[in-house]
Amino acid sequence: MDCDNTSLLKAPLSCKDMVTGMTHSPSQNQSDEELIDIEDDDFDLLEDDIRIGERDEIPFIDFSDRAQYLAIKSMDFTLVVKVLGCRVGYNTLHNRIYNIWKPSHPIKLIDIENDYFLVKFSCKQDYLKVQSDGPWTIFGHYLTVEPWFIEFCPTQSHPSRIMVWVRLPGLPITCYKWSMIEAIGNRIGSVVKVDYQTDNGRRGRFAHMAVNINLRKPLVSKININGRTQIVEYEALSTVCFECGIYGHVKDICSTLVAPVTENNVHSETLHSSTSKQDVVTKSSPVPNEAFGPWMMVKNVNGVPKRNL
């Protein structure tokens, strides 16, 4: 792990912060906020904390439960972040998260492998605010944000869960109730928030909400609401397979398409060809026949919150 690239970030006190009370001067909030020292999170190892030797001619070193506990404890208020589907350099990410998060206390950005970064917060309030105020986007790509956990492995291509913006275009106006939109959204994933304008009935073009989804499972592309099929659209998601509906690869290399050629397969292809004309979606069709397709992806993301840069 390369942790040489680190930096401390301080955000100025904005007018919004002063009005909402999100931040205070150190003298005002010292007793209310839980702060940790991110400059020096090291600790001293005692003689009993290390055990060394050889196993099968391979040198080993074991750390005591105390040392492991202190090491894990030092990761409090730490987030794992990654720009999904786009490689962003350290300095660029450093500047972007400063602009969109505006932390009230110092934070430290640490560059690790596979385009993942750790962000250590000195203030618990900043740490929680970043998680609750998403989803965040950078250059039109989601900035995935999740608390560090001991099983985290940076070799995985992307996190398993992410908060995304979804739309329900053409949703009947009778469903524009917060409770109903939340119930519908919970069939897609776990609803985190409903867009403010949608919540207040000011936007009638589509229902707009932030939902936690599992990227290891097929995306929900349609929902049947009282016998009517409702399309689900996703903002700023790239590299989605329109064969299996799972994020991270495209249809041409989808493993579900790899099958041995048999007489049954040829017969199935013949039947598919003979009925393909019936399955074609015309421009007048309100709902596509296929399970997944480009229509799931929002191309022109208008109305995305200003925090997304």
Rank of each mutant, 00 (worst) to 15 (best):
L79D: 10
N300G: 09
I112N: 04
P286K: 15
S157G: 06
D41T: 02
V194N: 08
M180Y: 08
A236Y: 10
G303L: 14
D126V: 13
F149Q: 11
G185R: 00
L215Y: 06
S27N: 10
M297V: 14
D40G: 01
P286S: 13
V240K: 04
S74Q: 14
N99Q: 14
I223P: 04
P294T: 06
E151N: 10
V250L: 04
N214H: 13
D56L: 06
S255E: 10
F77N: 11
T155E: 12
E39W: 09
E34G: 00
L257I: 03
A11G: 15
T20G: 08
C153E: 10
S179V: 13
K82A: 01
T155R: 12
R202T: 00
I100S: 14
M297Y: 03
Q30N: 14
A11R: 04
N224I: 07
V166C: 15
I112W: 07
P59I: 10
P218G: 05
T174E: 13
I52L: 04
C123I: 01
M209N: 05
D49V: 08
P218S: 07
K299N: 15
V281A: 12
R66E: 05
V258Y: 03
D17V: 00
R87N: 03
W101Y: 13
D42S: 12
P106Q: 05
I52M: 11
R228W: 05
K73T: 09
K299T: 15
T23N: 02
A71G: 08
A67R: 08
V287Y: 11
T155F: 03
I36T: 11
S221K: 14
T282M: 11
V19T: 02
T6P: 00
M163Y: 10
I223Y: 05
I188G: 01
S179G: 03
C175T: 07
L237A: 02
D62A: 13
I61A: 08
E57S: 14
N289C: 05
M163V: 15
F206D: 10
E39R: 06
R167D: 12
D115W: 01
E182A: 12
Y98H: 12
D111T: 06
P260A: 03
S238A: 01
W148R: 01
G89C: 02
S64Y: 04
D65M: 08
V258W: 07
G185M: 02
S274F: 10
N224Q: 08
I246F: 13
S190R: 14
P288L: 05
P26Y: 11
E243M: 09
L237H: 04
V250T: 12
V119H: 06
C244P: 00
I181V: 15
I150R: 07
S74I: 02
K217C: 11
E113W: 00
I58D: 09
P135K: 04
K306R: 12
D49M: 02
G89V: 00
C175V: 01
N29S: 10
I97R: 01
K306I: 15
D49Y: 05
E47H: 09
G170R: 15
V298K: 10
G170N: 15
E235C: 12
Y98Q: 08
I246T: 14
N214L: 09
P26T: 00
E269V: 14
R202Q: 03
G53L: 13
H94A: 01
A210T: 04
S7W: 11
K82F: 00
I110E: 13
M75E: 09
Y176Q: 14
G134P: 01
V220M: 10
P135F: 04
